[in-house]
Amino acid sequence: MAEVVTTRREGAIFEVTLDRPKANAIDAKTSRLMGETFKAFRDDPELRVAILKTAGDEFFCAGWDLTAAAAGEPANADFGVGGFGGLQGLRDLNKPVIACINGMTVGGGFELALSCDLIYASDHSSFALPEIRAGQLADAASVKLPKRIPFHIALDLLYTGRWMTAAEAHRWGLVNEVLPREKLEDRVWEIGGLLASGPPLVFAAIKETVRVAEPLSYQDALNRVNRRQLATVDILYGSEDRLEGARAFAEKRAPVWRGR
């Protein structure tokens, strides 16, 4: 039997592939495995960026495995250290994660994509939150989606469960780029390489600042940054990399980031 979650490591890039035919739906066991996988990525200082993709062309991810639900798996099952899909609740994941979407992205699969920092999609991909039709709440999407796209469009998707094409998702700024499927992975790896060559301490500071600032006023968030009250910002401001960036600029050369 093929492995449900496989990984590929190339330099500082870590690719995670979910492969659960035919819809890449996620049960609790798979979610726990994904959480441990992303936790290992988070804790490995040699890895700087992750790519999340799934196998097949029809589904990126159909969300929660309804077969498991029908067999008695509760909606509040133990989904592991990272929450559903391994990403939604993984604390202190201060590294970039790119979603490589090819196919239908449904319910919890849509919410999994929303847990990533960048989203690239093939032109035949589509998105939907059909929970409303089953009398269920798309909980993570109800929190995240109105903050990512115009409020009334988010509510339209949540209230109706309708399908949104990749082109529409791009128009609302939900997807970074839409590409032909044969060009998608090359483009995602190109972006992954760009990020992997960048300053890891700055990426960490960006992610923590964005996360902490979300519920705060502008001034409160800025005060925390300026007072070095965020761990990643404090590390960055006292780092060798910060000095290296200044020296490289003055010497008109490419910086060498060491993550310290």
Results as ranks from 00 to 15, higher is better:
5 V>H: 05
5 V>D: 07
5 V>Q: 06
7 T>E: 11
10 E>F: 14
20 R>C: 05
24 N>I: 08
27 D>L: 07
29 K>Y: 15
34 M>S: 08
39 K>I: 02
45 P>S: 05
48 R>L: 04
59 F>A: 14
59 F>S: 05
80 G>K: 11
80 G>W: 03
86 G>A: 13
90 L>V: 13
97 V>I: 12
98 I>E: 00
102 N>H: 05
105 T>V: 06
111 E>A: 06
114 L>H: 01
118 L>M: 14
123 D>Q: 07
139 D>G: 07
145 L>Q: 02
154 A>F: 01
154 A>H: 01
156 D>N: 06
156 D>G: 04
157 L>H: 00
159 Y>A: 15
160 T>W: 02
174 L>S: 04
178 V>G: 03
180 P>A: 06
180 P>H: 01
181 R>F: 09
184 L>K: 02
196 A>K: 01
200 P>K: 03
201 L>G: 10
201 L>Y: 05
203 F>L: 12
206 I>V: 15
208 E>S: 06
209 T>W: 10
209 T>P: 08
217 S>G: 13
220 D>K: 08
221 A>V: 08
223 N>A: 08
226 N>S: 14
235 I>A: 13
241 D>Q: 02
243 L>F: 15
245 G>T: 09
246 A>S: 13
248 A>C: 15
251 E>R: 14
254 A>N: 12
255 P>E: 13
256 V>R: 06
258 R>H: 08
